[in-house]
Design a protein around this nucleic acid. Structure first.
Lengths: 342, 342
DNA sequence: AATTGTAAGCGCTTACAATT
DNA sequence: AATTGTAAGCGCTTACAATT
């Protein structure tokens, strides 16, 4: 591998001169510049930015720590981060904690497990002196001990921060839920069941709130009996569908598309259809929602935007600007065919 | 950020000694080791592996170049790569070319576009002296000019190599197609239409081959009229469904789950059902296949395994072992409810 | 004044010398 | 022989000096 020193030698100039040229300093004659650039090009030379970062004590690199890149929201969030980084000429280095692959959900309540992979990851980011860190959660949770001891500017993407000084970008769960329930109400529904996620989950709580608000605004009584907690997956909602459907409702607000998938499965087996016999809405706008029959009306989570906003927030923080503690990315209604007008 | 030098100073020993301890060299007294390790721990010191790599001229790092991490196969392939890297104590650095985000499909036939982002990526990998590169394609294609001039051991994941010396890991498209069509035949189907992908695509060609083989093995005449090329997405197959269905067939082999989704949509609108009025199978085992009603029978692409195999292949290559030019990861039939027994 | 070179140093490792 | 330290160098940048 060719080095700057060799380029310098081949051109008969000093390394300082080559370095100045490569870094666009203007104290070099046009003649020398051309000569050097010709050789650089010919030899396909590229600065070793690792060595450069070491020397400059400035890496122009953002560290991305992802809980698990296999989570459906994560790749697009990272893509958003990378897009903004690229615009600004920053490099990106990603650590994949592989939390779910390692331990499924077990690490949620097990700080020892969690920090056994989390701490080394942050330490490594610190040791290579990234300029900032964005932490990408698999789904929204409270992150209560984000290591700030290294004084690296950090932000959270898709997680709620408990740490002063670590701002976060989340989605507007409450407003999203309110909007989609309002949509149902506008279509004439007043008896609306909820297929909810895990009861203790933040998304769940916030979306219940949004649901309640929409009911209140429409003057509809809130009946706690109509809420059914069924985790986030398909199977539990499939199992819970019969009971929920047996209540006196005309629509179900599912807190995830996967939950809606469980309900669809139950309906299918009974020869029934969303959008005809009952109305169903989801949340997430995962690809599955567009492939269900009929296509599922749902709330879009703008994952790319979460990534972009998080990265912009981080840049602001790195530049010492005043930044908000939390940014809420709005959700958007994707109106398809699973809701019946009464 | 604390450095090795500072640790040395604080312990009253030389940097060489600290370095030896941290690298597990045995020429250090137990006493000194304990003293130093205590300080290391207390101060939360971590070796800067970037500096280490620079000095050692050995980075213990694998470069991953992904065409686009948003492609549905990519995150799991990367996860597989990272899993085996972690086992072996290697670090990983990922470049996301964002080819699809930038240009949709336009870059396929535009080498200039392609290499304008590809070349710098490889160069950067080379300049930081990664020990090996795995290139992760968004979907299988021929990669005809993988820059080998840098002499970094490289492998391709999910792409066919045209380059001697750059082996690749692909899926066994032909056998996968043969198996699923055989499955259809075993269920009594003899008149089987094909909703195929892009005509010039390698997957498509190989899967047509597998289809033909299965027919031949069963003594069924191959009728080219029964093949309908409809790209990979949902919309085109939706549009093509009517025509294909109008032919005298009892089953459709769709070359992607998304293609199957298009057919499902058409059937749904006509009040028909897969697995009852006609049999449908897909390919890919994307999450959508499990959410269709009825759930789609399909071929699973083992994406994690592609990543793992690619990485193991690369390690073998790095160790100078003889390696095969190509590894085919088998596909696995996921038998669900979209096929009717005749 | 404009252009170029010298030499030190970023955080490490390692051959070799020095010390016990 | 076992343990420790010295000093050079990986590929760069940059303050400053030297040259034109």
């Amino acid at each position: 591998m060719i080095t700057l020193k060799e380029i310098a030698k081949e051109c008969g100039v000093s390394t300082a001169t080559v370095s100045n040229i490569l870094n666009g300093k203007n104290k070099v004659s046009e003649e020398t510049r051309e000569k050097v650039m010709a050789v650089v090009k010919e030899r396909g030379y590229k600065l070793n930015y690792v060595a450069q970062g070491l020397r400059k004590q400035k890496t122009q690199t953002i560290g991305v720590i992802a809980e698990d890149i296999v989570q459906f929201t994560t790749p697009e969030i990272i893509e958003g981060i990378m897009e903004v980084c690229e615009e600004r000429g920053y490099r990106t280095i990603v650590q994949n904690l592989r939390l779910y692959s390692r331990w499924q959900d077990l690490w949620f309540d097990n700080d020892k497990m969690y920090y056994s992979v989390m701490d080394p990851a942050v330490q490594e980011m610190a040791s290579i002196r990234v300029d900032g860190i964005v932490y990408v959660a698999g789904h929204a949770r409270n992150i209560h001990r984000f290591p700030s001891e290294y004084q690296i500017p950090s932000v959270l993407a898709y997680a709620y921060s408990q740490e002063k000084d670590v701002p976060s970008v989340v989605i507007d769960d409450e407003e999203g839920a309110r909007l989609i329930v309002e949509h149902l109400i506008k279509k004439g529904h007043t008896k609306i069941g909820v297929m909810a996620g895990e009861q203790e989950n933040i998304h769940t709580k916030l979306r219940v709130l949004g649901y309640q608000k929409a009911l209140f605004d429409a003057g509809i009584l809130y009946n706690p009996e109509l809420i059914c907690y069924a985790g986030w997956g398909k199977e539990l909602s499939y199992g819970a569908a019969e009971k929920l459907l047996s209540k006196d409702i005309t629509a179900i607000f599912c807190m995830s598309d996967r939950n809606a998938g469980g309900v669809y499965k139950y309906l299918f087996e009974k020869g029934k259809q969303a959008g005809r016999d009952i109305s169903i809405v989801g949340f997430d706008d995962e690809m599955i929602s567009d492939f269900m029959t009929p296509r599922l009306t749902t709330m879009r989570i703008d994952r790319l935007q979460i990534g972009k906003s998080a990265m912009e927030l981080l840049f602001d923080k790195m530049e010492g600007k005043e930044v908000p503690d939390e940014i809420k990315v709005p959700c958007r209604l994707i109106d398809r065919e699973s809701v019946l007008k009464l």
